[in-house]
Computed example of a mutant assay.
Amino acid sequence: MDITKEKKPKVFAVSGIKNSGKTTLVEKLVTRLTALGYKVGVIKHDGHEFVADHEGTDSYRHKAAGAKSVIVYSNSKMMLIKDYEKPDILDMLQYQQDMDIVIVEGMKYSSLPKIEIIRSAVSKTSVCDPSTLMAIVTDVPLKEANIPVIGLNDIDSVLKIILNK
């Protein structure tokens, strides 16, 4: 197999502060991109610890017994629960290599290319490094140097930026 011809997915983040609408934007992008025929993966960054499983399930019991990694699978899906000392986005991307596009939700301080969402209800300023921004999606009148500023409902313009980068 010629690894130089291996396809790598386009990877970018949808970032912003808490409650800015990241999940809603990601949902809209996934819907539109899959309708266009793209295989889309999502990696969700959670700044807080979360419980990926619940008490009483076999996988929960395996983790409680000390397993560092548990995979639960069926005929149509798989879930990986794995302990990391210091997770890296590259570790997560290895599970998305068969995708055309991978959207990382969160990671506002990462070096990933990103679309930042700014909502007037929660903030009126950017929190991301401008050098990482592909665009800002907002309901606030902004003028950012060299960064496209797109209205909240203009998904077509967001898609153009994603597909052309």
Rank of each mutant, 00 (worst) to 15 (best):
L33N: 02
V14N: 03
K18C: 09
L80E: 02
F12Q: 07
Y95V: 08
S76K: 14
A135H: 00
L142Y: 12
L36S: 15
E49P: 13
E55K: 13
G106T: 00
R119F: 05
K7N: 02
S59M: 10
I136F: 00
S120I: 11
V137A: 04
K44F: 02
K77V: 14
G151W: 05
V42S: 03
D139Y: 11
K160E: 09
S59E: 08
D100Y: 01
A52C: 14
M78P: 14
F50E: 11
S69D: 09
G21W: 00
D46L: 11
A135I: 01
E144V: 03
P9N: 09
V127Y: 05
Q96M: 11
T138Q: 06
D83C: 02
I17P: 03
N19F: 04
D83V: 06
Y95H: 13
V102I: 12
V70P: 01
K39F: 04
A65W: 01
M79P: 08
M134E: 03
K86F: 04
H45D: 00
N146M: 14
E6M: 12
N146P: 00
V51R: 06
A64T: 08
V122C: 10
V51D: 14
V70F: 08
S20V: 00
A135N: 01
I3N: 09
E55I: 05
A13T: 04
V102Q: 05
